[in-house]
Every structure is written in structure tokens, then in C-alpha cells.
Design a protein around this nucleic acid. Structure first.
Lengths: 241, 241
DNA sequence: CATTACACGTGATAC
DNA sequence: TGTATCACGTGTAAT
């Protein structure tokens, strides 16, 4: 790994000049930071010990706070750099500048990729034109134009609609109950999921009540090879697509 | 260290530079690379005389190269920052740290979006996969075939290898009735077809009896814009895939 | 030996 | 009155 962060602690010794500044770091690699609200409040506290620590006369103590603030700022910046480095692939260079450049190019790549994927998806979803009204396959997140800057409200791509999936295994059969809002054709998605998982449908009932869709499906399952929770998670995950 | 001494000397210069420096509001950096090498060379050599305690003997004159290198590095880093800022949307904060954080979260968002889109695309393209009985029906004349749609004289070994689709329109709703052998997940195929055709499902019932699957679905249809036969043919055709 | 990169302290400076 | 951020020069390693 890189030893950039902890390195300068050694350089601190060269700091000499009285001020045995205690070491606040403890050197937290601490993996990804999520750095907000970093405390590390060790500043401005007077040295209590009998340890001779007298400030030189005429020294200002304003700057002492200043240097601490600046130190925190640097530390935060480095954490951000590290976080950014963790999400950008193939950054072999530990150079900060190259990291920034790679991040920028990577963002561009992702943008074009998203654009072409959206184009493909749109093209393939428009293959049927019987009733030329609204588009399927467009939940609220992907319809925005990507060329212009999009405001991102919240990181919500998969978790916005509340959906409930319940599975009960009864011998060689299982009862799958799904209730979800009536968006994006939940019946089709559920059946697709069951097909993906190779669960033959014995019986199914779909009812729309107000804006809620209730689905009860009886399927066949291999005897005792799968747990309810695994099935539930698998169905839930596949219904997101 | 000695920096304090030099600070007095350079403070004037710094103030001038800070005045000329662009500030966050303008941000119109406009390149200006390496235009300053001559200028700084001029001011560094400026200090002759009156400074008591001048350079120590044996002091290196290299440092001015060093400061220039560092200056270039800073400039390059700032260019990268600016470039990164140009590709990340909604960066209202001119803060460097926030820029890094926003860039990281933006990359994550783009990644999940790409994943989501790829999943959808895969799901869509998966509908056209063929697994068993896809081509046993010939569908070259779906629009002309009317009424009961008996396609093939089925092979002798399976007597019920045929599918029947019936549509009855009742006002703004329609009843779709499908009976087919239990091969290739007919429920998923029917729901996919209805999704393709933008027909919201109000109610659905799927029952497997012996080797036959019966499906009754109530859907919403645009009032009087389609005929039963058109709907029937469209559903039938799509269920072949 | 030079080149490159980094962290540090510090002055300046907006809000 | 702080409390942010920034750029700068400098010392220090590692290549």
C-alpha cells in the first residue's frame, strides 16, 4: 500500500522547536472515511502535565489553532482523495494529479456508457407501437436527459419504491406473496423473476386495489433445497430489473 | 525557521500576487500556464543588500528551481481540479474537498446506474431467447388469421401442443383468456406481452390443470382504439417469443 | 546529482 | 469577532 499519510509523522520530529506536539493521529488507515463530522478534538487543550511546556513569551496562540485547522483540512482532503481512489478503477499511479485526471476521464466514460445504454434500452422498448402512449421501462430515475446537468435529489436508484415480498414454503410448493405499487408492470416482473429462477407456476392471482397490486403465486420448488429467505431475496432482487 | 525572515521580504510580492489571483467567483482560470517563470525569477533575485543576515554561506541556490517545480505542480493540480469540476454536475460548492466528495458519490451513482441499465437490457434481451417450442408455430400470417387459431396439426406424441388466445373488450376494459400447455413459462410470456403492449393489468388468474395452463386477465385498454382481433393477434404473436 | 511528490506551517482573505 | 479555504515557500523522502 501507500505510505503517504503516515509518512510525515516522522517529519514531525524535525519539527523540533520545543512543542512536543502530541500525536493525535494514531494513524488511522480506517479504510473509507465517510469523512464528515470528523472530531479529533485534541486542540486548544492546555498541556496539563508537569512536563515543561511553557510557551515562549510573546508567542501568539492564535496561530496554533490555525495550524490545527489547516491540519484538519489537509487530513480531510486526503481522506477524500483516498475515497475517490477507491471508486476509480485501475489507478495504478499513486499520484494525486493522475488520480484526478483518471477520475475525470472515468466519469466521462461512464457518462457515455450510460447514454448509449439508455439509447439501446429506449430503442428496444419502443419496438412495439400499438398504443403510442407512455413508455414502459421508464421508472422515474432514468428518464432524465443526461447531456444536461441533472440535479440528483437523493441516491435513489433501487430503493425508492417500497415493495414487499413474502415466501412460505410448504413441502414441495411455495406461496409467494408480493405487494407493490402499480408501477412498471409488477406482474410481468414477478413472472419474469420466477422464470429466471426456474420456478414453475401452479397458480397465480393478481389483483389491483387502488394503487396497490397484490400478487399471490403458488410455485413448485425443489424439495428442501432452498430457504424462504433465499427465495425471497432472489425474487426481490430480480424484480428490481 | 528562517521563513519568517523571508516572509518579510516576500510579503509584498505575495500581496500583489494575491490581488492578481482570480477568486472563486470568477473561476475563469483561463490557462496561463508557465507564464510566470520569468516574473518569479525576477523577484527572487531581487533581494540584494540591506537584508542583514542574508544567505548563509554555502546556501544552495537550487531552491528557486524547487519553488518553480512546486509551483508547476500546484498549477497542474489546480487544472486537474478544474477539469474534474467541469465533468461533475451540480457542484455548486467551489470547495475542493466537496468537489472530491461529490465526484466520488457521482461515480458511485453512475456505476449503479450502469449496472441497473445493463440489468434491464439483459432482462429485455432475454425475452427473445428460445428454449423449447418457439418455432413450432408459424407466425407469418398473424394478421390474417382470424378466430380460432389452430396452427399446427400437433405431433402425435403431445396432443395439446397448442395455444388459444381470446379477447373480449368490455368498455374500457378487456378480458384476455389464454390456454396453453405448460411449457416455457406461459404466465411470464403473457405478462411480458401485456407489458410490451402497454396494457395495465387489473386482475389476473393463472391456474394449472393437468398439463394445461389457463390464464384469465383483465386489462385496461384505450377506449375504442383497438379491436379484439388486433389485440388477440398482437398478444398471440408476442407470446411466441 | 536531479526530479517528483508530498506535508507542513504560514500569511492572506472571504463570510 | 471567529472560522472557513486557499496559495505559497520550504523541508524531506523516494525514484
Amino acid at each position: 500500500m501507500f505510505s503517504s499519510v503516515q509518512k510525515e509523522r516522522t517529519s514531525l520530529e524535525k519539527q523540533k522547536e520545543s512543542e512536543t506536539r502530541e500525536e493525535p493521529t494514531g494513524q488511522g488507515r480506517s479504510s473509507s472515511d465517510s469523512g464528515r463530522s470528523d472530531s479529533d478534538a485534541g486542540f486548544t487543550e492546555n498541556n496539563t502535565g508537569f512536563k515543561k511546556r511553557g510557551r515562549k513569551p510573546g508567542e501568539k496562540e492564535l496561530p496554533l489553532n490555525h495550524v490545527e485547522a489547516e491540519r484538519q483540512r489537509r487530513e480531510r482532503l486526503n481522506h477524500r482523495f483516498y475515497a475517490l481512489r477507491s471508486v476509480v478503477p485501475n489507478v495504478s499511479k499513486m499520484d494525486k494529479a493522475s488520480l484526478l485526471a483518471d477520475a475525470a476521464t472515468y466519469i466521462k466514460e461512464l457518462k457515455t456508457k450510460v447514454n448509449e445504454l439508455e439509447g439501446k434500452l429506449r430503442a428496444v422498448s419502443k419496438k412495439s407501437r400499438i398504443s403510442g402512449n407512455a413508455n414502459i421501462y421508464d421508472n422515474q430515475s432514468t428518464s432524465t436527459s443526461t447531456m444536461t446537468n441533472q440535479i440528483r435529489p437523493t441516491p435513489n436508484y433501487m430503493s425508492n419504491n417500497q415493495m414487499e415480498v413474502d415466501v412460505k414454503i410448504l413441502g414441495s410448493e411455495a406461496l409467494v406473496r408480493v405487494q407493490s405499487p402499480d408501477v412498471n408492470y409488477p406482474a410481468a416482473r414477478l413472472m419474469d423473476s420466477l422464470r429466471d429462477l426456474d420456478f414453475p407456476v401452479h397458480h397465480a392471482s393478481v389483483s389491483k386495489v387502488k394503487e396497490l397490486v397484490l400478487q399471490d403465486v403458488v410455485i413448485r420448488v425443489p424439495d428442501g433445497l432452498v430457504t424462504e429467505e433465499v427465495m425471497r431475496a432472489a425474487i426481490f432482487q430480480r424484480m428490481q430489473n
